[in-house]
């Protein structure tokens, strides 16, 4: 089990390998879309890894990128259709960012580096763990942005009304997109100062 835990911190895709930031940060203004995004990426990553690993010996190397793109986009479209049917409001919030999972470098990176050369079960686990490591960062960033920016968590008011009456204000800056980047920078900083270099 231990060998799969790397992506959570030591090899965290966002904090250490700086992969997959693209589609991630735009959805972290609130906790709910961030969690759904994290789940979607985990599902896509795990199942693409599984499929590619199952068929890895039949893929002609010359066209492997195309095959990978096809498999990934298959899962992404599937996830997108399911979201539209069962989580309509959230799918509207995520809009094009679900589609952008296709070009999420984490997924292509794991396919290329792991699934092409490993057995199905380890590949599946590798996909899950990378998705979770990615999701962890997303959720932490979204937690602080929603709490400080809107005073809510999961759309429920958590900062008591009394605080507003004595002059507390939501930090509007947190809602703006650039704050997501600054928060990730701070997370890298904290992580970096705790880990031996």
């Amino acid at each position: 089990m231990k060998k799969y835990l790397g992506p959570l911190s030591k090899d965290n895709p966002i904090l250490v390998q700086t992969l997959g930031v693209c589609s991630a940060l735009a959805v972290t203004a609130q906790l709910k879309p961030a969690v759904v995004m994290a789940l979607s990426v985990t599902v896509v990553c795990a199942f693409s890894n599984l499929i590619i690993s199952l068929i890895r010996n039949t893929i002609p190397p010359r066209i492997r990128i195309i095959v990978q793109l096809l498999i990934v986009s298959f899962w992404v479209v599937l996830v997108d259709l399911l979201l539209q049917a069962y989580f309509y409001e959230i799918s509207k919030l995520l809009s094009v960012f679900v589609g952008l999972i296709i070009t999420n470098c984490i997924i292509m990176g794991r396919l290329e580096a792991f699934a092409l050369s490993h057995k199905p079960w380890p590949s599946f686990m590798d996909g899950v763990m990378n998705g979770v490591g990615y999701g962890l960062v997303l959720v932490v960033v979204a937690f602080f942005r929603e709490l400080l920016g809107s005073g809510t968590l999961w759309n429920h008011q958590v900062i008591p009304k009394a605080l507003y009456q004595i002059g507390y204000l939501n930090n509007g800056l947190m809602i703006l997109p650039p704050m997501a980047l600054i928060l990730v920078g701070v997370m890298i900083w904290i992580r970096g100062s705790r880990v031996d270099r």
Partner: peptide, 11 residues
């Protein structure tokens, strides 16, 4: 080795 036919059929 994979032949061209194989690649076309595969894709």
């Amino acid at each position: 080795k994979f032949s061209n036919t194989y690649i076309y059929v595969y894709v």
